[in-house]
Structures are given as structure tokens and as C-alpha cells.
């Protein structure tokens, strides 16, 4: 066993211990702190594997961003105070059994796979690590499309998160609109309007992605124009389904109208 392996095992078991604690403790804030530690352990592992940039990003994004966000989430929902974060004992035992079986299966698979530890042809180069230059070239070169898609995804996430978490105005109607004949006609037109707006936007995005060379700016410039006004003017789409789930039998006409309504981004 090489020294690298030993250190990997050491750091890894620490990381694992932190993760287990994060999953096990009853206090959610404590769990989050243990989780943060576990993330740091992973960062160390990254560093050991020659991915120092990634280790940095891990700490920045995860420990700095995600854990903080989650702590905010816990604070916002004020649930941690009077209830434990974990379920009853029998549930935990069941969960443990399932995960242990899964683990056993994985270990079996790993141990039965030959040649994992034999030095590969590129091993020497690999252990030398990947430079930041190489990474940058890879990201903007061969993986350019993925990069672009990711940027779109982030944008969508942003919009989605805003829409979802936006607090409703007190004057805004909560239920779905009563569907009269007049309303139905109007809603149909509105329902038609939203795809008319959305479709070109989607088409443009796809076109932009398809051409790798296309400047990122163009995509970003186009998308907000089409989606943002809709968001600010209409009800949030995600609220609609939650309303639907409460009353089971929905008239077909009403359902059509609703989906038309829901189409409005």
C-alpha cells in the first residue's frame, strides 16, 4: 500500500465519519456543520488527487455557498427547533440495512474488478496533476457546448428560484380563476400567447447552442427579454399544480384551461 493510499484512506475515513455524523445527528444545524466538514474532507481528497483547483472550488462553492444557503433554508423554515431531523428508529434501521446492502454490493463489485491498482500507462503523467491551463482549454474547447448549456441552466435556475420563492402579494387571488365562458376565451388567447413568445426563445437558444462558436452573450441577451416580463406579470406556474393536487376530479375543459394558464411562464 503506497503512502498516497494510506493518506487517502485516512482522509477518506475522516470524511466519511463527518458525513455519517451529518446524516445521524438530530439537530439540523449540527448536521449542516458536520456536512461542511465532510465537504472539506472531500476537498482534501481532491487536492490529494492533484485537483487543487477543484479543491478550491469545492471549498468556495460548497462550504461557502451551499452550506450557507442550507443554513438559511433551515432558518427560514424554523423547523429544527422542536422536531428531530431524522426519522424513527425502525426507519433508520431499515435505511441502514438498505444502504449497507448497497455498500456491500458495491464493495464486492470493486474488489472483484481486477487491475484497478495497476499503474496505467498515463499514471505518471496523471499523478503530476492537471494544470489550470489544461482545464481552461478543456472547458472552453472540447466541452464548450456543455459549458454553454450550463450557463443556460444556471440562468434558468436563477429565474426558477426567484419565481418559486417569491412571496405572493396579499391581493393576489390564491385559487384558480372561476371559469366562465368569457374567461375561457380570454384565457385561451393568453394561453396561446405564451407559447408564441416562448417558442422562438427556445428555438433561438437551441440555435445558439448548436453553433459552438456563437457568443455566449447573444444567448444571454435574448433569453431574459422573452421570459422576464412574463414572470413579472402573471401568476407563477408552479403554484398551479399545487392547487390542482388538492381537488381530484377536474373537468376536462377546466383542465385544458388550467394547462393553458399554466403554460404562461
Amino acid at each position: 500500500m503506497s503512502s498516497l493510499e494510506i493518506s487517502l484512506y485516512a482522509v477518506g475515513s475522516l470524511t466519511l465519519a463527518c458525513g455519517l455524523l451529518a446524516m445521524g445527528v438530530r439537530n439540523l444545524v449540527h448536521a449542516l456543520l458536520w456536512f461542511g466538514l465532510s465537504l472539506m474532507g472531500t476537498a482534501v481528497l481532491f487536492a490529494q488527487l492533484g485537483a487543487s483547483f477543484l479543491a478550491g472550488m469545492q471549498i468556495l462553492l460548497y462550504v461557502g455557498g451551499v452550506v450557507m444557503l442550507l443554513i438559511f433554508g433551515v432558518m427560514l423554515t424554523r423547523e429544527h427547533e422542536h422536531l428531530g431531523a431524522v426519522r424513527e428508529v425502525n426507519h433508520r434501521i431499515r435505511a441502514a440495512v438498505v444502504s449497507l446492502v448497497l455498500f456491500a454490493a458495491l464493495v464486492m463489485a470493486i474488489l472483484h474488478t481486477p487491475g484497478l491498482d495497476q499503474a496505467p500507462g498515463l499514471a505518471s503523467q496523471a499523478t503530476a496533476g492537471v494544470t489550470l491551463d489544461q482545464l481552461a482549454v478543456a472547458l472552453l474547447g472540447p466541452y464548450g457546448i456543455a459549458f454553454e448549456v450550463l450557463s443556460l441552466l444556471l440562468l434558468a435556475t436563477m429565474v426558477g428560484a426567484i419565481v418559486l420563492a417569491r412571496k405572493r402579494d396579499p391581493g393576489e387571488p390564491t385559487g384558480r380563476k372561476p371559469i366562465g365562458r368569457q374567461n375561457l376565451g380570454k384565457q385561451r388567447i393568453e394561453g396561446l400567447a405564451s407559447p408564441i413568445i416562448a417558442l422562438p426563445a427556445a428555438a433561438a437558444s437551441v440555435a445558439a447552442i448548436a453553433t459552438v462558436q456563437a457568443p455566449t452573450v447573444a444567448v444571454q441577451a435574448q433569453a431574459p427579454q422573452t421570459t422576464e416580463p412574463a414572470v413579472s406579470e402573471h401568476e407563477s406556474p408552479a403554484e398551479q399544480p399545487t392547487d390542482d393536487t388538492t381537488d381530484a376530479p377536474v373537468d376536462v375543459a377546466a383542465a385544458v384551461a388550467l394547462s393553458a394558464q399554466g403554460d404562461q411562464p
Partner: peptide, 16 residues
């Protein structure tokens, strides 16, 4: 999720 992971575990075991 129990079903998903349980099934995954069992399939993996069976494969092993």
C-alpha cells in the same frame, strides 16, 4: 426511494 435503492442493491448483489 427505498424501492429504488433496495432494488438497485439487490440487483447489484445478484450480479455479484
Amino acid at each position: 426511494l427505498y424501492a429504488v435503492f433496495g432494488a438497485a442493491a439487490l440487483i447489484a448483489l445478484w450480479g455479484g
